[in-house]
Amino acid sequence: MQNDNAIWIYALIIVSGLLQAWGPPMNGALRVALVNPWLASLVSFLPIVALLACVFICLPHPLPGGKDIAAMPWWAPLGGVIGAFAVVAGLMFVDKVGAGAFAGLLITANFLMSLAIDRFGWFGMPVHELTGGRVLGAALMVGGIALITRS
Results as ranks from 00 to 15, higher is better:
10 Y>C: 15
16 S>H: 02
16 S>V: 01
16 S>T: 07
16 S>Q: 01
19 L>V: 09
21 A>K: 08
21 A>G: 10
22 W>M: 13
25 P>I: 03
26 M>W: 07
35 V>G: 01
36 N>T: 01
36 N>Y: 01
37 P>I: 01
38 W>H: 10
38 W>R: 06
40 A>M: 03
40 A>C: 03
41 S>D: 01
43 V>H: 05
43 V>Q: 02
48 I>V: 14
48 I>G: 13
50 A>E: 12
55 V>L: 14
55 V>G: 12
56 F>S: 14
60 P>S: 04
61 H>W: 05
61 H>N: 07
63 L>N: 06
64 P>Y: 08
66 G>Y: 03
68 D>V: 00
70 A>R: 13
70 A>Y: 07
70 A>F: 02
71 A>T: 11
71 A>P: 05
73 P>N: 05
73 P>M: 05
73 P>G: 12
74 W>Y: 00
76 A>E: 13
76 A>M: 07
77 P>T: 03
77 P>S: 04
79 G>L: 06
79 G>D: 08
80 G>K: 02
80 G>M: 02
82 I>A: 11
83 G>R: 02
83 G>P: 01
84 A>N: 01
90 G>T: 00
93 F>W: 04
93 F>Q: 00
100 G>N: 07
100 G>E: 11
102 F>P: 05
102 F>C: 03
103 A>K: 01
103 A>H: 08
103 A>T: 11
108 T>S: 05
109 A>L: 12
111 F>G: 07
112 L>Q: 08
112 L>W: 06
117 I>V: 12
118 D>V: 11
119 R>I: 10
120 F>R: 14
121 G>D: 11
123 F>K: 03
125 M>K: 04
126 P>G: 13
127 V>P: 09
128 H>I: 14
130 L>T: 12
130 L>Y: 11
132 G>V: 09
132 G>N: 03
133 G>C: 08
135 V>H: 12
136 L>F: 14
138 A>E: 09
138 A>F: 13
140 L>T: 13
141 M>G: 11
143 G>R: 08
143 G>W: 08
149 T>Q: 15
149 T>E: 15
149 T>S: 15
